[in-house]
Design a protein around this nucleic acid. Structure first.
Lengths: 236, 236
DNA sequence: AAGTCCAGGTTTGTATACGAAAGCGAGTCA
DNA sequence: TGACTCGCTTTCGTATACAAACCTGGACTT
């Protein structure tokens, strides 16, 4: 699931096996199947995926460069684990980068405003349903944000944001949003569409900043609850 | 030369051969020996470095993830080439990130102010010599900036900045600074030390922003001159 | 009883081998 | 003359083989 927004560009442009290994392992980390601090055996991964160790190693190297894994010499890789401090760092950066991108998108002339409006509508509908489909909402939201990042016209900015966002959030999800939060989030999206369409960078940037902050609150909530739930606290 | 500041953490924590291949190729790209758009043959690199293709491939994958190379399926890697637009993108990001880091460093309590002052002094002396040692000045400058980035206390921020700075600048250098620019740059450093020591984030951030802008002017100058000099314009 | 040291197995790191796709040039046909 | 095709060469992608580093468990020493 949610294949479409999973960094379509950062991935490997190598062979089929490498590509398969890359996305398989990546998906497992992001979905939480491979949990923080866990050591990964190359041979295990290779047989699981059904390829040899070579493409697995290349995939691991890419993932390490993205910050999802950490190499230890002669001891292979471990899954990175994330503390609250890590999340705070990332939030600080997002508060800087995404509003900036939004301001750029307001005046760049490269924003697909039609698509953005469509996504905002879809989001609206999704949060009003009685039976909430969190995966669907998450997917819509990712597409919405990606559209804005692309609309900034700054390629590197989009890649940078992707690289820090996806990682520590470990699949940015709306599982901890209250229904009230969800409706507010959808309202933010509508207001973002409006401000971007009007071409007012200050307005758009401000709304995005508020939107970020709402997400941060729920991220903290999620982290604290999951930290309580697990027996051992995540140690970096 | 200038080994010390060449992203000591982003490098490979793999074997010796991989590490060697990584730093060798990286150095050649940053020094300009491998120029933009050029295609790299794995076998060539392997024999040149004196290892087999396997570690070379792993090094290439890391470098691609850093944005120095681009993979093309079944056609190996090319060195990324940079347009003025790329440089503008990076400048925009630096204007955002480095002042932010500076503001953090002013209050984090994690800044090595003694080291920073030492580097500012060394810079002062270096720019006043009659015979300017550009490599030395560049090295001091890199250390100065790294010290501030580390002092921000935000690990990810430092890595992010490194990843975007090093790349397109292709070794941030002072070759195009006028003597006047150099003296002003050194003055900025002194003022940065002072503002950071006083713990005033607004002051420190503002000075850094001005400092960035000075660097940008000379970067543009360098790019335009090199574009004139070369027969073919860099095409992405 | 606790610590040390050695041996065996395990896992990573590197090299090599082989199959497949892309590039290139000669020859052929319109 | 020009363009197309066929086949050869080169280079990449993947698998496998071997070497070096590590981890574990048990016997030995103090």
């Amino acid at each position: 699931m949610t294949e479409s927004t999973s960094t379509p560009e950062a991935g490997p442009d190598s062979g089929y096996a490498t590509s398969l290994a890359y996305s398989t392992i990546r998906e497992q980390i992001l979905s939480g199947e491979l949990t923080g601090g866990q050591r990964l055996r190359e041979d295990e991964l290779a047989t699981m995926i059904g390829v040899s160790r070579t493409p697995v190693r290349e995939a691991l190297r890419s993932l390490a460069a993205e910050g999802l894994l950490r190499y230890e010499r002669n001891r292979g890789v471990r899954v990175e684990s994330w503390t609250l401090k890590d999340l705070e760092e990332v939030h600080g950066l997002r508060m800087l980068l995404e509003p900036y991108a939004t301001a750029l998108a307001a005046t760049s002339g490269k924003l697909d405003i039609v698509e953005l409006a469509r996504l905002a509508n879809e989001m609206d509908e999704a949060v009003l349903r009685s039976r909430l489909d969190i995966n669907h909402i998450t997917e819509i939201n990712n597409q919405f944000h990606n559209t804005i990042m692309e609309g900034s016209g700054n390629q590197r900015l989009r890649i940078l944001v992707n690289s820090i966002v996806q990682v520590p959030t470990v699949r940015r999800t709306f599982a901890q949003y209250t229904p009230e939060d969800l409706r507010r989030s959808a309202a933010h999206h509508r207001e973002l569409v409006e401000s971007l369409r009007s071409g007012d960078p200050v307005w758009a940037e401000s709304v995005m900043r508020a939107h970020m902050r709402l997400g941060w609150i729920s991220t903290q909530r999620r982290f604290l609850e999951s930290a309580q739930g697990s027996s051992s606290p995540p140690t970096p």
